[in-house]
Write a protein that binds this DNA or RNA. Structure first.
Lengths: 121, 121
DNA sequence: ATATTATTTCGAGAATACTCGAAACGTCGG
DNA sequence: CCGACGTTTCGAGTATTCTCGAAATAATAT
């Protein structure tokens, strides 16, 4: 992932409504949701929602697919993982990742062993 | 982590220079770097860099500490992990995370088993 | 005290992003 | 074909962010 792409993805997520949309889609799973459903749930005017969905789509974070009259949006998990990987790349230096392995994305660890018991931030 | 905090963190990272600063600090490790070093490496005017460092600091992504004349900035790994966790929360629904576990943040998996062989995004 | 270094604050112009109503566009049912 | 539905495009006003030189602040050395 290039820096430009990462910036685009982060900018796309850096807005209250868009972040809410994205998380809604992440939770919704591969089936996604249609635009109207999202607009209703978030109480955002259709034209505003389109604006935000386009930002997410252009950034590659969500996919768009037509189902007859409806447009289905779904989270693109690959790009999400790419972004997370980009942020944590070379954490604590290239050869010494072990030095602070606990600090560098222990999310998966937490998810595997226990529940969400340690809210880091 | 609240939505407002996440938006602030994402907005802080959603800029070419700031993302470069942040990744530089993530790679630098807990020791951090002083402002001047960052400004020199990125070829950004001091006043501009301060503006960006403040954004990162206010968002809680980096810590600030004075060392005599120099100000040392370091990545706050806890907040980074919190942000990543927030993005991937409830992936594919609360009770059915297993359904698409591979899609939901396999970053740690990749880091553990092999090298960076599969560039997701 | 004075100079030197490291960094921040101030300020104002330039650029970019956000909101949302009205109108247009694709799709389906009758 | 025509109406209804779901969604997007257009446009203009409003708000926010970015940039960076000049001046101010903090810390140290002579």
């Amino acid at each position: 992932m290039k820096a430009t792409e990462a910036v685009a993805a982060l900018a796309a997520l850096a807005h209250e409504n868009r972040l809410a949309v994205y998380r809604m889609l992440v939770e919704a799973g591969p089936g996604g949701l249609n635009a109207g459903t999202i607009a209703t749930r978030l109480k955002v005017p259709p034209s505003s929602l389109t604006f935000h969905l386009q930002q997410l789509h252009r950034a590659g974070l969500v996919t768009q697919q037509r189902n007859s009259r409806q447009l289905i949006y779904a989270a693109d998990y690959g790009s999400m993982n790419g972004l997370v990987g980009y942020l944590t790349e070379n954490c604590c230096g290239v050869g010494q990742a072990q030095a602070c392995a606990i600090a560098c994305v222990p999310v998966a660890e937490i998810k595997k062993s226990g529940r969400k018991s340690s809210k880091a931030a």
